[in-house]
Design a binder for these strands. Structure first.
Length: 422
RNA sequence: GGAGGGGUGGGUGAGUGGCCGAAACCAACGGUUUGCUAAACCGUCGUAGGGGUUAAACCUCUACCGAGAGUUCGAAUCUCUCCCCCUCCGCCA
């Protein structure tokens, strides 16, 4: 969430930012009204508490002198009731204020272009070219089936639609990519975590999945837990409610996890093969940095993800997301898309975002400045490096032979132990 | 799952109704001393939210001793519920 002081002092800046995201800034007015109400109640309540505290001391002194304190005690009984009433009122106002604050999105960075839809996103970089193929390339789902390396039908039997089973060299290729991505992250200075795959509501709220995207997560009802939709959630929550020494920044963490997404409401289009599934593998990068460095960190993370695609020799481009296509909690975001030669379209394989202090405030994740001084919120960022299914899709399609086999990219050989599938 | 013990400031740990936002020690930071290091000594040393000040420094108030509710004029301290940790037993990869 945003800083209430910023909202109080510069409501117009916030309103403008919300409007750029295509959302209604009217909630700012609600916040301002509730904030004013809150401060009035605070002042009334605290004045009474102050009186209560001093009188209580007097009662102690009177009793020590064996004086009669019944009159004062009777009066204080009324004061105590009034305090309780005001505290209750204050609680109601603060709860309401908190709910509204969670509904106010983060505001876009100045370098983010205005726009409403994905069509307004800007391509800012491109790399590679499609391979020269003198036959009609097949889409990956045909290759998967003929090679027998992913079984959708049996996945449906075991669990349901959108839960593919990787088989034989398919499973091995998946594991090879995971290891490759993790090794590259380690080489870039990232510390690997292997986190829990279920998180509690506090963690999901910290990163912004709750209350915003509740419908996207699988819920374990008996235990009030959520299956992770991305490693971002457990990894970013690693230091929740902690204050880090400034010298420890930047914190660079990476993690492989399966990701579970209900994908509610996305039927029909783009769901063939591995394009959109309910469970997929992903390696995620998370940065926790000094507020002055977060946009440099964003570029560094983008570079890490790009390097992976280059080493895999996959053609890709980079999109700078427009203000209207930013997520609720993000200030700036890049998407990396690979070219699918079998489908003749771009597939998103990475999303790299800066949240500035928005998540950190929800997480209560701060750092203590090296020269002493008050703790401040860190900036958090995350980025995929990378999401597996679409990488696999593009990789299979791009490296297919006329006979329907697939040549494995050379960087993966030491992980796969084979150089060709089929 | 059963039985018992426990959650206090960065750490250890005292504190069973008012003089406790909380002793002491350690760590950290500043200083004195010292040829350097170490030691010793002195001092500082929680967080958040209000109010005052143009602002900062600073002053002041309030809250916080796992979380929430209760008893009381007054709660770290008493009562209840929940969460978490530890030990033993059972079960188990």
């Amino acid at each position: 969430m945003l800083d209430i002081k910023l909202l109080r002092e510069h409501p117009d800046v916030i309103r403008a930012g919300i409007a750029r995201k295509g959302e209604d800034p009217v909630k700012v007015n609600e916040v301002l009204a509730l904030d004013e109400q809150r401060r009035q109640l605070l002042q009334q309540g605290e004045a009474l508490k102050s009186r209560k505290n001093t009188v209580s001391q007097q009662v102690a002194a009177m009793k020590a002198r064996k004086e009669d304190a019944t009159a004062v005690i009777a009066e204080m009984r009324l004061v105590a009731e009034e305090i309780k009433r005001l505290d209750g009122e204050l609680r109601t106002v603060e709860d309401h204020l908190h709910v509204i604050m969670l509904q106010i999105p983060n505001i876009p960075h100045a370098s983010v272009p205005d726009g409403r839809t994905p069509a307004d996103n800007k391509e800012i970089a491109a790399w590679g070219a499609p391979p020269v193929i003198d036959f009609a390339p097949k889409p990956h789902w045909e290759l998967l089936e003929s090679l027998g390396i992913v079984d959708f039908v049996r996945g449906t039997k075991i669990t349901g639609a959108g839960f593919p089973v990787f088989v034989g060299k398919g499973a091995r290729l998946e594991r090879a990519l995971i290891n490759f991505f993790l090794d590259e992250a380690a080489a870039n200075g990232y510390t690997e975590l292997l986190p829990p795959l279920m998180v509690n509501a506090a963690s999901a709220t910290g990163t912004g999945q709750l209350p915003d995207k509740e419908g996207q997560m699988y819920v374990v009802p008996g235990d009030a837990l959520y299956l992770v939709p991305t490693a971002e959630v457990p990894v970013t929550n690693f230091y929740r409610d902690e204050t880090l020494q400034e010298a420890r920044l930047p914190v660079k963490l990476c993690a492989y996890t399966p990701c579970f997404r209900r994908e509610a409401g996305s039927y029909g289009k783009d769901v063939r093969g591995l394009n959109r599934v309910h469970q997929f593998d992903k390696v995620e990068l998370v940065n926790m940095v000094h507020p002055g460095n977060s946009y440099d960190a964003l570029e560094e993370m983008r570079s890490c993800s790009e390097q992976l695609l280059r080493k895999l020799k996959l053609q890709y481009h980079v999109l700078l997301m427009c203000s209207g296509d930013l997520g609720f909690t993000q200030t700036k975001k890049y998407d990396l898309e690979v070219w699918s030669i079998g489908q003749q379209k771009w597939l998103e394989v990475s999303s790299i975002s800066n949240f500035e202090s928005y998540q950190a405030r929800r997480l209560n994740l701060r750092y203590r400045p090296g020269g002493g001084g008050k703790p401040e919120f860190v900036h958090t960022l995350n980025g995929s490096a990378l999401a597996l299914p679409r990488v696999v899709a593009a990789l299979l399609e791009q490296n297919q032979t006329p006979e329907g086999k697939v040549i494995v990219p050379s960087v993966l050989h030491k992980y796969t132990g084979f150089e060709i599938i089929g």
